[in-house]
Amino acid sequence: MRLLTHNMLACNVKGVVNGYPLRLEAEVVAERPADFNADFLRHIFARIDWKAFVGAARSLPEEHAVADLPEDAEPSMLASEDFLRRFHHALLELHVEKGALVCPETGRRFAIDKGIPNMLLNEDEV
């Protein structure tokens, strides 16, 4: 699971109001190179919840943790190739293979195994 997917997911348990962003607890992370596409990054920027994204990127296990992304981002930064490269790397090249997503409101855990988050609900949660 890439951080781009993490950025889209909210807790889906019925009745939860503040289920976003899910706290990321990554245990195993893989890095896989992806083609750099500046136009895509500019296109997607407005749709990214930056706070959730940076929070997730910084929370990764030490050797993969991304420390060089700014706390706040604004569209003017998209002119910088250096910024775009870091944005690209964190968004598309880091894959959480094992860990969990945790609901900020209820603490409900969604396990991530083989890169696949399990968002299946129990009967009493739908």
């Binding site: 699971m1 890439r2 781009l4 997917t5 950025n7 889209m8 997911l9 909210a10 807790c11 889906n12 289920g19 976003y20 749709r47 919840d49 890169g115 696949i116 988050p117 399990n118 968002m119 299946l120 609900l121 739908v126």
Partner: peptide, 16 residues
């Protein structure tokens, strides 16, 4: 990326 979920219970942020 793959997500294990019932389509009926998807909870995604806006038109992502």
């Amino acid at each position: 990326d793959l997500v294990w979920c019932d389509i009926r219970n998807l909870s995604w942020k806006g038109k992502c």
